[in-house]
């Protein structure tokens, strides 16, 4: 905080604004943008991993596995993400603690569900109640990432499932003709070749993921929406040095600009990536590149 901010009531105009925008609370708001970016950075590969797993399961020759994969894709995609977010975090948390409880406290003689209470032994708590605050925060964040990854993994699975089917059959047959085992074909041909078909769907998914981050506050993470609401609300002089009216509109305008800028940058970056992936591919765009170079 700036040194001159000790008496904000005496300030006006830009000086007041400068002090106002550098309060500890605003710093937390700016930090929340970092939280959102961090979440995206971790969730995207995690969701891709879930998606890959789901797609492989759905393609499986073994019927129950295939049903499992297809069921995961269908159920998660059939439900609005918000409905998942509202109870998934508590459910995941209880599931983990329940499993740990079974493993760590075999001698526990009280029921785990005591009426409404969900009580596990102290050793099974996640994180341990003696853990420092940052562990609790990271755990909460981790649960949020996992929830996002499960939900968006289903969409990614659907895209990858389609992309695997889109790889030209001739390429697979050629691989078989060279004597590759199914496993080798999968690893050396199918997976490397599918990305160009998956990218349009995945880029859309990335855009969707960006736009789902305002729901983060439902998962108990204090994100930019939480802070925008908190900061923008009317403040009475009794509890703050910077009383103001209802400024939520301006804070939400800032969020709007942030998201527009972020999606625009993503669009440009993804278009470049697509150009590189298309290089040398047996598609219309790949053919066009070849002709332009020749």
């Amino acid at each position: 905080m700036l040194g001159s901010c000790s008496d904000p009531a005496a300030l006006d105009g830009l000086a007041w604004l400068a002090c106002y925008l550098t309060t500890g609370k605003h710093m937390a708001f700016y930090g929340a943008f970092g939280t959102v970016l961090l979440l995206l950075a971790i969730t995207a590969p995690a969701a891709l991993a879930f998606g890959f797993g789901g797609a492989v399961l759905a393609r499986s020759q073994i019927a129950p596995l295939s049903w499992l994969g297809k069921g995961y894709i269908a159920i998660v995609r059939g439900v609005p993400d918000i409905a998942f977010f509202l109870f998934f975090v508590i459910a995941l948390d209880q599931a983990f603690e329940f499993l740990r409880h079974k493993a760590l406290c075999p001698g526990w003689n009280q029921p785990i569900w005591q009426g409404n209470d969900f009580v596990v032994c102290n050793e099974a708590k996640l994180p341990l109640s003696s853990a420092p605050q940052w562990v609790h925060e990271s755990y909460g964040f981790g649960l949020a990432v996992l929830t996002f990854a499960i939900v968006f993994g289903a969409f990614a699975a659907n895209v990858l499932f389609g992309a695997m089917r889109a790889v030209p059959h001739a390429q697979i047959e050629t691989a078989e003709a060279y004597g590759m085992t199914p496993r080798q074909t999968f690893r050396r041909i199918l997976v490397p070749q599918m990305w160009v078909y998956a990218l349009p769907g995945l880029s859309n998914l990335w855009m969707v993921l960006i736009k789902a981050t305002p729901l983060l506050f439902l998962l108990g993470v204090e994100d930019i929406v939480y802070w925008a609401r908190e900061l923008g609300g009317t403040k009475t002089p009794q509890f703050t040095d910077y009383p103001h009216g209802d400024w939520r509109m301006w804070y939400f305008l800032a969020l709007l600009v942030f998201y527009l800028a972020f999606t625009r940058v993503s669009e440009i970056a993804l278009a470049r990536l697509m150009t590189r992936l298309t290089h040398g591919q047996a598609t219309v765009a790949g053919e066009a590149q070849r002709k332009a170079a020749a």
């Binding site: 736009k211 969020l255 998201y259 527009l260 999606t263 625009r264």
Partner: peptide
């Protein structure tokens, strides 16, 4: 409309 979250569009 495609670049911003629907959630924020509603608020706004």
């Amino acid at each position: 409309f495609r670049g911003s979250p629907l959630f924020i569009q509603f608020f706004f």
